[in-house]
Design a protein around this nucleic acid. Structure first.
Lengths: 235, 235
DNA sequence: ATTTGATTTGACTATTTAGTCAAACCAAAA
DNA sequence: TTTTGGTTTGACTAAATAGTCAAATCAAAT
């Protein structure tokens, strides 16, 4: 019957996100989440039956946010290779700047419970976890070698083509993608350590991250495109 | 009086390392550590007074292990730029292959408690945390701009020199270092997610990581050295 | 004003968990 | 064999924590 301006369940969700990201599932306390949301612990349970349920809701949203650039940009068949790289890096840096705690949280929870990701993704993309599970060696022939193309197939084929046509330097496409993701994500995962190593305060590090997008793109294109040096003559 | 073949405190330490790495400080249970070590929980407290004490011991060792390549190789004044890069990547990949859970654990704990790193390092390198602490803006002049050279100064100066002499492409040295570290470390931090994205099982991913060292070095040199293309003509 | 149904709360319970302790154990020295 | 001092253990305590519940509150509809 009652309707508030700002929905309580959304406030709770944001509070929970904050606390879970700071302390992980095991370290998070329901009381802490209630305090952060400015409500009673009993109310917390009124909205989300249990800690597990609350966590699942937060985590499901987070993982989706994290995967959007991957499934969206990397699979879009309309993009040229260079534009795809530029767009991906730009979009990922943007997402992560807006949600700095996201990747570490996801990595941590995935690491302590890898099955969680599988079951979450299975709901959207049936069969994706097949090769992940150690035990499931059996699979009908004919599907072999297709699995890896689920998310990244378009991108990988594009790189292979460019290599065959002689336009690109020789690289392992999977290694290349991993490097791309690494350079985007790690600065957020390793923030405190990097800050210390580079001797930067919070503001300096934010500025540093602002410059990062173009720097990464530069590396990626220089590594991949044979003619990059001549296209962008370096002083 | 009694001395065992394998020291109990070492067994405990390894068990604790395993559990802490899996669940973090907050999520770890003393009972779980005791089980993992095959001893009674009371014995656990006999050897390490408290959970905090045990954690500190584990974390101190881990952070040291993680920083060895950084402070060792990156600061060694005797190495040429190319050898430094090659050695660093090789050494880091090796360390992380032997301790796959290390970086995620460190990143997580550092993130939920950044002060911990400072106080640990202060013991060895007094003054290192000065710029880290938001509040400490005041510092005697003359020391400014020297702070970042604490760990990375040798490396950064070497890159600057090469750029001035025209041997190297223009890059931001700090961004370059971050990219190098990112490409080494992230594959271990994001293991479960990358495995899923690339559709690899554990064995395949291990093989994939074995090839990574040379691939990263290739990227790094190609980005940095102007003549890399001609030195290593790519078919 | 009264009713109604959703929401909020303080007080409660049950369980988990870090940490303690006295007694038992054990291997070597006397 | 007895003693000694480090080690191990089961049983315990105190504190923290997830989850419950009946009563109070509140805002809108009648």
């Amino acid at each position: 019957m009652t309707k508030q301006d700002v929905q309580t369940d959304q406030i709770i969700l944001e509070a929970a996100r904050k606390v879970f990201q700071r302390s992980g599932f095991g370290g998070a306390r329901m009381q802490e989440i209630a305090d952060e949301a400015g409500i009673n612990k009993a109310s917390l349970h009124y909205y989300y039956r249990s800690k597990n349920k609350l966590f699942q809701t937060v985590f499901r949203e987070d993982i989706q946010l994290f995967l959007v650039p991957l499934v969206g940009i990397l699979r879009d068949p309309s993009l040229s290779l260079e534009v795809r790289i530029r767009t991906f890096v730009g979009s990922y840096i943007k997402t992560l700047t807006e949600n700095p705690g996201l990747p570490l949280f996801i990595m941590q929870e995935l690491s302590s419970n890898p099955g969680r990701l599988i079951s979450l993704l299975e709901q959207n993309v049936p069969g994706i976890g097949d090769r992940y599970d150690e035990a499931s060696a059996e699979r009908p022939d004919g599907e072999h070698g297709v699995r890896e193309t689920m998310f990244l197939g378009v991108f990988i084929r594009q790189i292979r083509h460019g290599m065959e046509s002689g336009e690109l330097n020789k690289v392992d496409p999977e290694q290349y993608i991993l490097s791309m993701i690494s350079m985007c994500v790690f600065p957020f995962v390793g923030r405190p350590m990097i800050r210390l190593l580079l001797g930067k305060d919070e503001q300096e590090y934010r500025d540093f991250l602002m410059d990062r997008e173009s720097e990464i793109i530069e590396y990626l294109l220089r590594v991949l495109f044979k003619d990059y040096g001549s296209r962008h003559a370096v002083s």
